[in-house]
Simulated assay, not measured.
Amino acid sequence: MSDETDLIKLYSGRILALAADIPHLGRLDAPHATVTRRSPLCGSSVTVDVRMDDGKLADLGQDVKACALGQAAAAITAGAAVGADLNTIEKGRDQLKAMLKDGDAIPDAPFDGFEVLSPAASYKNRHASILLSIEALAEAMSTAHQKA
């Protein structure tokens, strides 16, 4: 199978559907923390605003300027994150990294939706964009926790 055919398969209908319907799009008024992450390789960027309540993510806003894979990852992250604590987000982030970089298992629930991005493991130049949203979210939640 050619590299071009593999790349076309990577951008599946499911990934494109996720990219077209990202939850929690837009910025929050008066967030507890804001973090912007950028991938120098491709130029994708994500800004995440968070509001916390009792150690859990109460509200999330995000501005996503990324490729379809980064957008799909942002959709999966946002769809699973509200109500989670920092440990859950960090575990999801670490499991996603391991899935992409080491071929490890799909992340546990609530981040098992990242399964759709498992074909991207073969495309190391796409990893940074895929990780942007969950990395920014973990950093923003950590910052908000430190301020509290």
Rank of each mutant, 00 (worst) to 15 (best):
S142M: 14
I8R: 09
A74C: 07
A80P: 10
S45A: 09
S39V: 04
L7F: 14
D94P: 01
K97Q: 12
S142R: 15
A105I: 05
A68T: 09
V50I: 01
E90P: 00
E135R: 12
S12G: 05
D108G: 12
L10H: 02
G13C: 06
A78Q: 07
D112E: 06
A66Q: 00
L28E: 00
L86R: 11
R51Q: 12
S12Y: 01
R38A: 04
I130F: 01
I106T: 12
A128M: 15
A84K: 12
T47Q: 02
L57E: 06
L96S: 05
D104Y: 05
A30I: 13
D108L: 11
A98P: 12
Q62N: 07
L86S: 05
M52W: 09
A105S: 15
A73V: 11
L57A: 02
L25D: 00
T143A: 14
M141Q: 11
S129P: 04
K9F: 14
I76W: 06
G61C: 10
I89F: 08
Y123E: 06
I22V: 12
G70F: 03
F111M: 10
A74Y: 05
S12A: 03
D29A: 08
A68P: 02
A19S: 09
G83Y: 13
K124V: 15
D53M: 14
A120L: 02
R93V: 03
G113S: 09
T77V: 11
A80N: 10
V50T: 08
R51T: 13
P107D: 02
L7T: 09
E4S: 10
L117A: 03
A81R: 13
L28W: 11
Q146S: 14
G83F: 13
H127P: 15
Q146P: 08
T143D: 14
D108R: 15
G55I: 13
L96A: 03
A75P: 04
D108K: 15
D108M: 09
P23M: 02
G79W: 08
Y123M: 11
L132N: 06
A66M: 07
D49Q: 07
L86A: 09
R37C: 11
D29F: 14
A30G: 08
A136N: 00
L117Y: 00
K9R: 14
K101A: 11
L131W: 04
K65L: 06
I15D: 05
V46P: 04
D112A: 01
G113D: 06
D59C: 08
I15C: 01
G113A: 07
G55V: 12
G113K: 07
I8W: 08
E135A: 13
S118P: 02
S118T: 06
M52P: 02
A84H: 02
T34Q: 12
K91E: 10
L100K: 01
A75K: 04
A68L: 06
A66I: 03
G79E: 07
L100Y: 02
S118L: 04
K147L: 02
D112K: 03
P107V: 01
R126V: 07
M1I: 06
H32A: 00
I15G: 01
